[in-house]
Write a protein that binds this DNA or RNA. Sequence first.
DNA 1: TAAATAATCTAGCAGTGCTAATTTGTCAAT
DNA 2: ATTGACAAATTAGCACTGCTAGATTATTTA
Lengths: 190, 190
Amino acid sequence: MGISERKIRERSERERRIIVAARTIAERDGWASVTIRRLAEEIEYSQPVLYSHFENRDQIVGAVALEGFGELAAILRAAIRPSSTSKERVEDVATAYLDFAFARPAMYEAMFVLPTGLRFARSDTPPQLREGFGAMATVIAPFAQDVDTATETFWAALHGLAELERHGRIRPAFRAQRITLIMRMVSGEL
Amino acid sequence: MGISERKIRERSERERRIIVAARTIAERDGWASVTIRRLAEEIEYSQPVLYSHFENRDQIVGAVALEGFGELAAILRAAIRPSSTSKERVEDVATAYLDFAFARPAMYEAMFVLPTGLRFARSDTPPQLREGFGAMATVIAPFAQDVDTATETFWAALHGLAELERHGRIRPAFRAQRITLIMRMVSGEL
DNA sequence: TAAATAATCTAGCAGTGCTAATTTGTCAAT
DNA sequence: ATTGACAAATTAGCACTGCTAGATTATTTA
């Protein structure tokens, strides 16, 4: 009975092709260019097929975003070097976070700006959505009483820096100084 | 020759009606419901008339956003009480900023998320876009070496808090604690 | 009063997300 | 092998979007 398994496999491969196509087009031409028609053309199926994989366009963005959360979490974890001091670790994670945001603006937009249908802080929340937070919590913990609240605040600062710079509201040339400031703030030596 | 003046006046009144309509619809039904057709219907003119006032839809959003920047600046300035300590002023401005963001989510979205065609940090940048930053700089100055960079970072932290909470990424119940954390960070007593 | 200019509208283009109705393909039962 | 049932995929189209060319109406100038 390998036939039905093959069908399931082919189906999930097609789903992957949709997600890859969405990501590719978004990174090249922006999310406005990611239309159902274009995706259908890319995977060489008619448009309604996409709706047998995803409820609507937002969920396709959500699927790409989910990948992004997994990748960001891995990047942040990788930025935590055992040989570093607690302070250095905060700085490294902050730098890695912003590097990610600026290197993959379309992905970052999917993760944090666009409607995705992703649900946070629920019982069925995928692990990718928690892991990035966990990595940040790891480096914040040594400096915080309430780790969760401190991590939320740290995260918010990084997100704000990413968004304001992405929109041309703050000076790109001073990115390093701002990170230094946040690091000093977290470590309590201002 | 008051006729041409009346015409100019009527024209700018019509422009105001467009902006007011856009704002009203956005605050009630979201920006996706602000369409050229709906605005045209609202002001009782045909659609092309809107394009004699604004180049495109983004510029209408931008006009609303510009009002928002003026209002935010006024709110932040008003939050700075002469009788307060430097620390309290930081907290009051932070609280006022977030109150604004959560009380007027559509307006905040126009100001910081949607494409608006507004140009920051230019010679022709409208004063509204600078005044809010100025208000924040005022309360940050007593604690900072480099006021501009510190204000950018402070602003980013607030923006991040607003956005992450608006998207359900961080816990609304802990908003006050996060503000306290930021305030302590700025004032250097962690 | 006639011509020129300005203001406005009608009509329509090319595109969007999404879906009902139809066709095509695949399988099990006769 | 043929038929009927089910699944998979397609065609065609709806209601909407931002935007604009061309026609029409109103106003001003000569």
